[in-house]
């Protein structure tokens, strides 16, 4: 019974195989959750199509290198919608379910850390977002003749920034929600509040001025403005950048303080 006879134990850290297996498991979980798979992709496309039918997609906005109102307003709203649905509604509901069902606790007794689940979930979510973005841009181009952004790399950068902001809001929702049901409820309220003030249901200019200004710095409106600027070849508004940056930093910090594994 002497501890001195104990041989040293090797450190066991999950390798690439474990990471891929966990990401594969997360992808299967998302694919088998019909609503979680279809709603974040189907609803935005539906809104895109409805807007495309209602818009005169041939009217070019002056000074935008031939981009139409459809390119500059409808497409950014659709793309932001996809990112926000996955980041703010889907992702926290998965994490809340994992916490509720004890999966994070179960992983806590294996070499895989619960942090791996967060990363795998984020990777799968981003893959789902990419599928949604490609689908939306494809439908917009094929059905309504949508144009690519004047400044492609700015658009890519702003999309990445939008993903960071929406995921940080999603992490905050996951941190404060006590149950999976409440995470969906909180996520949907946060989503629709940001979307309504950000121009999803009509031009932000139609809102009372204080609300329009608030909507412009909340992540949905800020993302729409930033992507619209990239599509038009304009300089991205500072207010949009600040809004996305502050959202990312503050939400991440608060989520990190409040997040519970159990």
């Amino acid at each position: 019974m002497t501890d001195t006879l104990i041989p040293p134990l090797p450190e066991v850290r999950p390798g690439a195989r474990a990471w891929f297996a966990l990401m594969g498991a997360e992808a299967k979980m998302v694919a088998r959750d019909t609503a979680g798979l279809i709603v974040p992709l189907g609803m935005p496309i539906l809104i895109l199509v409805m807007n495309g039918i209602g818009f005169d997609t041939d009217v070019v906005i002056p000074g935008t290198d031939g981009r139409t109102a459809f390119d500059i307003f409808v497409l950014p709203i659709t793309l932001t919608f996809i990112v926000a649905m996955v980041g703010v509604v889907n992702m926290p509901s998965f994490l809340a379910t994992y916490r509720r069902t004890g999966i994070l606790r179960r992983l806590g007794v294996t070499p895989a850390s619960p942090v791996m689940v967060l990363v795998a979930q984020a990777v799968v979510g981003i893959a789902q977002i990419l599928v949604g973005l490609v689908l939306a841009v494809g439908v917009a181009h094929l059905a309504f003749g949508a144009n690519p952004p004047v400044d492609v790399w700015t658009a890519v950068g702003m999309l990445a920034f939008t993903v960071a902001a929406m995921y940080s809001v999603g992490m905050l929702v996951a941190a404060v929600a006590p149950t999976p049901q409440s995470s969906v409820a909180i996520g949907l309220v946060a989503f629709f509040a940001m979307a309504a003030l950000g121009g999803l249901f009509g031009p932000r200019e139609n809102l009372p001025e204080p609300l329009a200004e608030i909507g412009g710095v909340l992540p949905f409106g800020a993302a729409v403005d930033a992507l619209g600027a990239a599509w038009a070849g304009d300089v991205v508004p500072v207010a949009a950048l600040v809004g996305l940056a502050v959202t990312t930093v503050v939400s991440s910090a608060v989520a990190a303080l409040m997040f519970r594994w159990e």
């Binding site: 090797p10 450190e11 066991v12 979980m29 004890g102 179960r106 007794v109 070499p111 850390s113």
Partner: peptide
């Protein structure tokens, strides 16, 4: 953690998995 988790197998009271 990285040393112990490699040699420890735990069946928790509530069977909770994906």
């Amino acid at each position: 953690r990285a040393k112990v988790r490699g040699v420890l197998g735990v069946q928790l009271q509530q069977p909770r998995l994906h």
